[in-house]
């Protein structure tokens, strides 16, 4: 019973992770945790599973948190690449003042650009 349910969730989650390679690992790991919590809530013996099952809210909250972190990590890594390329074309012995302020502006502009693109996408998408 419970295992069947767990497998369904797992399949869903795996299909879901194929969407983004970079967040694949995090969600895969999450899936393992999810499975563990369903199979073995609070380390209780299998016979008392149904009584102690973690609530959906708990699992959804955890998954959301994990995803938010994965998105943030991905965003950070992109912005770092973009701004390093733009602002530090010839790396010197230390980061200069003008390079630092370029990086600050670059991060702000990248966030702004994400907003502009996001609005453009939402206008273009058929609703």
């Amino acid at each position: 019973m419970i295992e069947e349910g767990t497998e369904t969730h797992e399949r869903e989650i795996i299909a879901f992770t194929s969407l983004s390679r970079r967040i694949h690992y995090q969600v895969q790991r999450k899936c393992g945790i999810l499975r563990l919590t369903i199979m073995d809530p609070f380390g209780a013996p299998p016979s008392s599973l149904s009584g102690n099952q973690p609530s959906n809210e708990h699992m959804m909250g955890q998954l959301k948190q994990q995803l938010a972190q994965a998105y943030a990590e991905e965003f950070f890594s992109t912005v770092r690449d973009k701004c390093f390329t733009k602002c530090v074309p010839k790396p010197g012995s230390s980061l200069s003042g003008s390079e630092s302020s370029c990086i600050t502006r670059c991060v702000e502009r990248y966030i702004e650009a994400t907003g502009i693109v996001s609005r453009a996408v939402f206008t273009a998408l058929p609703r």
Binding site: L19, S20, I23, E74, Y110, A113, V117, S118, A120, V121
Partner: peptide, 12 residues
């Protein structure tokens, strides 16, 4: 996730 991915890709 699909939308997020799309917006990220397009911004890039």
């Amino acid at each position: 996730a699909v939308l997020n991915e799309l917006v990220g890709k397009l911004t890039d």
